[in-house]
């Protein structure tokens, strides 16, 4: 198991290097000059030149890339051209907030998604099943910004139950986590339902019923555990997506996360921050996937790592 983990970490290194090359090239291929953006629409050539020099933008591409890579290994991601702060300091400020929001969203998705999926699977094509599937369809198709703004209008402006925006307490987390978690909730509910349906039709379930076990015990102990492996995969993928894809939710609720930082930085062509943020998201995504793979073993002891 330890050996497996180590091997996975080693395999991750080329992926991360690939991400670094791609993000480095992509931000520079996009038209626009950070120095010009910083200086504004009416800066003179001298000011722009001074800024280019100050942030090393005049150096050759290989030299800039080498600086980026060596910096990463020294834990130094450079200085933001927009805020003039160390990128590591900005990431350290914003990433935990995104993590908090993504955790909140995944909790929402699990707490509602898995029970709904189980319920639907027990009576396929019943009104309950139809209601759950319809809910899931709506949850998956509803645009996040629309749902978020609607939630603010109803629960904050009209009813006054939750604060409109900002981060701070649990109350602040409720609406953004619900908004962000909605589509994951729907996907997890559907996945749980279909996986459960498959398992419930298998021989061992029939045997268990024939043995006279309680239905509740069969569903929750025997069937659910077997149905969970694909669900966990989806949860892992969803969590990774939540980390990277919270941009809109963060903007609507003024949640100071890495997504909103990334958007602002892309618009400002703030190369060091874009590079750093994308790298961090990629590393987290890889880490989440690794954790998911390791969790399989606990759920289904038949899965062996060697």
């Amino acid at each position: 198991m330890l050996q497996y983990t180590l091997r996975r970490v080693l395999i991750a290194i080329p992926s991360i290097l690939g991400v670094m090359i791609i993000v480095f090239a992509m931000v520079r291929l996009a038209p626009g000059d950070p120095a010009q953006l910083l200086a504004g629409e009416f800066a003179d050539a001298e000011t722009i030149e001074l800024i280019r020099e100050r942030f090393g933008l005049n150096d050759s591409m290989p030299r800039q890339f080498t600086r980026f890579v060596t910096g990463v290994f020294q834990g130094d991601l450079g200085e933001s051209t927009r805020t003039k702060r160390l990128v590591t300091s900005d990431l350290a400020t914003f990433f935990p907030n995104t993590l908090e929001l993504a955790l909140g969203a995944i909790v929402v998705a699990l707490v509602f998604g898995i029970p709904a999926g189980i319920l639907a699977s027990l009576r396929p094509n019943s009104p309950i099943d139809l209601a759950v599937m319809l809910g899931a369809l709506i949850g998956v198709s509803m645009p996040v910004f629309w749902f978020g703004l609607l939630a603010i209008l109803i629960f904050s402006v009209q009813l006054g139950w939750f604060p409109v925006a900002g981060r701070g307490t649990l109350r602040h987390l409720v609406l953004p986590a619900l908004t962000l978690g909605l589509s994951s909730m729907a996907i997890i509910a559907r996945m749980t339902r279909s996986s459960m349906l498959e398992v419930l039709n298998q021989d061992f379930v029939r045997t268990a019923r024939a043995k006279g076990l309680f239905w509740r015990a069969i569903v929750l102990k025997h069937a659910l555990r077997n149905a969970l492996v694909p669900v966990v995969t989806v949860i892992g993928l969803q969590f990774g997506a939540l980390l990277a894809g919270a941009v809109i939710t963060e903007t609507v609720f003024t949640w100071p996360g890495i997504g909103s930082l990334l958007v602002v930085s892309i618009l400002a062509r703030d190369y060091p921050v874009v590079q750093g943020a994308v790298l961090l998201i990629a590393v987290s995504f890889i880490a989440v996937n690794l954790i998911v793979d390791l969790v399989y073993g606990f759920i289904d002891p038949r899965i062996r790592y060697d």
Binding site: L149, I152, V164, A165, T251, V252, T254
Partner: peptide
């Protein structure tokens, strides 16, 4: 700091 204008307006309304 409230980038979304609908949210910003909701803040002053509430």
């Amino acid at each position: 700091a409230v980038p979304e204008s609908t949210t910003r307006m909701a803040l002053v309304e509430t």
